[in-house]
Amino acid sequence: MLFEKVLYPFDGKKASLEVKPYVLKLKEAGCKEVHLLYVLVPSEWGILAKEEYDCIEKIEALKAAIEEGFVDALLRMFKKMEEVASEFEKEGVKTKVVMIPGELDEVISEYAKKNDVKLVALGITSESLSFFRVGKVLDIIKALDRPILIVKSPEEEG
């Protein structure tokens, strides 16, 4: 099945939201499972213990290691991702929400392999502030060994 399991890297910005309707539509072509992944890049979040942060408890446990403000920001992101995930669940698509520390290309390609993802759906803006810029996206595509759907959003971030 070509689209059975989709990895949807998500950073909450407009560009990554533009992909959502495409992934939802792929349900009709056999998509049964969507994984929302937020990569905790060191330049933004510092070095965090390499773990799959996939529930509130694991994120809250970070309070021992990093500033509370950061943990709250992570919790907000996690909830936002769960909201998006619920839109898929409503359509009968299984979801998983996870945050993983590391560089974008490494984390995304490793995760895709490990979870036998069939397609990666990336939302990008050509030169905007979003973290999926074209240059970075080329690194991600090169690191991946499976198909990638690239959705460009025409407008800059507000």
């Binding site: 991946l144 499976r146 198909p147 990638i148 759907l149 690239i150 959705v151």
Partner: peptide, 8 residues
């Protein structure tokens, strides 16, 4: 300008 599906 439109989305691109790159097959690997």
């Amino acid at each position: 300008k439109c989305p691109v599906l790159i097959v690997k």
